[in-house]
Design a protein around this nucleic acid. Structure first.
Lengths: 255, 255
DNA sequence: ACCAATTTGTCCGTATGTATG
DNA sequence: TCATACATACGGACAAATTGG
């Protein structure tokens, strides 16, 4: 292919106007000119400012809406929002499911994240965190014969444990993983309720480790807990290298 | 508040039609009825199927477009896509920046993720991974007097290191963190080039740990490397509890 | 390489239900 | 209570780009 010197041009960008609209507003938000809580102008205002049609503005707003940068407040009025974990994490989890990641990958990631996050929970936990964990533990003991309830309480337990790190970055990194872990765990518990006592024992020791700020103990029990999780998966007869298929909400729900 | 028995109704949900359109298509994708690569029907087709106006269909499609479930192929034609890491991770990082997470949170998260991911890299690395790392290392040594180049090569080094885990879940969990780490590191290196020899030394030992599959050594040097990173940040005179403010691309770029 | 049909991007005008003052 | 403003949704239209012969 013979190309003259003249081909050194920037690729011309005929981007749709609705993308440009979204990008413009996004830029203002990321630059801090528009701050969380600030109202986005009305559609008519934006129409005037950008000099494009109403429909075009609306399409642009849809993009921002989905990215979480703007959200409906009380009414239908749109304002700048701080994208919330859950929606983003849900989308990431979906991406993983669509990529057919394996249980093995999920397990090793949980394993990699375990010690570090229990350390931080031990360092940063508050008395309120302990209370919540104690309450969860008590409730789990009560419901130990109800596999469904135990699964839900286990999910809550680990949410509380992660929350005790008081580290938003860590929380966000773990959340997509947790979303995949949850349904798998529920399946394991339902399939093999005989593991519930061990689960409760592990939870108890973990809370204890947080209470006494005992890192050794924390790491020990999180490791056992994860091993049990893997063992439970294997007992349920599934292949470690089978794709994780989770039932995941759409992250759009209000709650 | 006296409430009659008749108040036990579900809250009625008048969701906009464009959301319903998006949800419907999303459901088909998640259920596997529409598979990656499949073209979304043309707008006119969707208009007929859903019985709504074309503008409404288009707004719905914008939501899917931003969520990454559909993407433009070569042309403007939209087809089902597997949401790509980078775009999602970028959005997550943005969320963290908007939440004004601190360097301290970022550091402790990196610290929590470090040992586990180096372990996995050691277990799963291939000879190709080693080659790429060697090449990166050689190049870094060459460019050791150019702080900018070193910063970029350092970013690439850690990308390669993470890639060597061959664990997509771990990769996705780390990516939002890495996006925040990168500009911070660049700043540190630019501010204090005297740390470059230590950085190169650490990289060398890490590659060595991967080559010999030496976990002890890997953990040791990733720990040192992270400590140096934190020390560099402190030397640059910034507060550990100051918010991370990163220059982040919009994740919409092509390439 | 050309043409015809299709499809997307954009625009205009209008109607309707609802929230705010 | 009423009036106004606004978001949602609809219909039709046209130019430019893409597709497929």
């Amino acid at each position: 292919m013979i190309q003259g010197v003249a081909t050194r041009f920037e690729r011309i960008k005929a981007r749709p106007a609705y993308e440009l609209v979204a990008e413009e507003i996004e830029g203002k938000i990321l630059a801090g000119i528009l701050r969380p809580g600030d109202p986005i102008g009305t559609e008519s205002e934006l129409v005037k400012q950008f000099g494009v049609n109403r429909s075009t503005v609306r399409e642009g707003i849809r993009l921002l809406e989905q990215s979480g940068l703007v959200a409906r407040e009380s009414s239908r009025r749109l304002s700048v929002a701080v994208p919330h974990y859950h929606g983003l994490a849900t989308r990431m989890s979906r991406a993983l499911v669509l990529q057919q990641v394996t249980f093995r990958e999920l397990f090793h990631t949980s394993r990699a994240l375990g010690p570090g996050s229990i350390d931080q929970a031990i360092d940063n936990r508050t008395d309120e965190d302990l209370e919540a964990l104690d309450a969860n533990l008590a409730r789990t003991r009560e419901m130990r014969h109800d596999a469904r309830a135990v699964a839900e309480l286990d999910a809550e337990f680990h949410r509380l444990l992660d929350g005790a790190t008081h580290n938003r970055v860590l929380l966000l990194a773990k959340e997509p993983v947790n979303i995949l872990v949850r349904p798998t765990t529920a399946h394991i518990i339902a399939n093999n309720p005989s593991g519930i006592p061990r689960l409760i024992e592990a939870h108890g020791h973990l809370v204890d480790a947080l209470r006494t700020r005992d890192r050794e103990k924390g790491r020990l029990w999180i490791d056992r807990h994860l091993r049990d999780w893997k063992a439970g998966f294997e007992i349920s007869g599934r292949d470690l290298d089978s794709a994780v298929e989770a039932i995941i909400g759409d992250g759009r729900g209000e709650a």
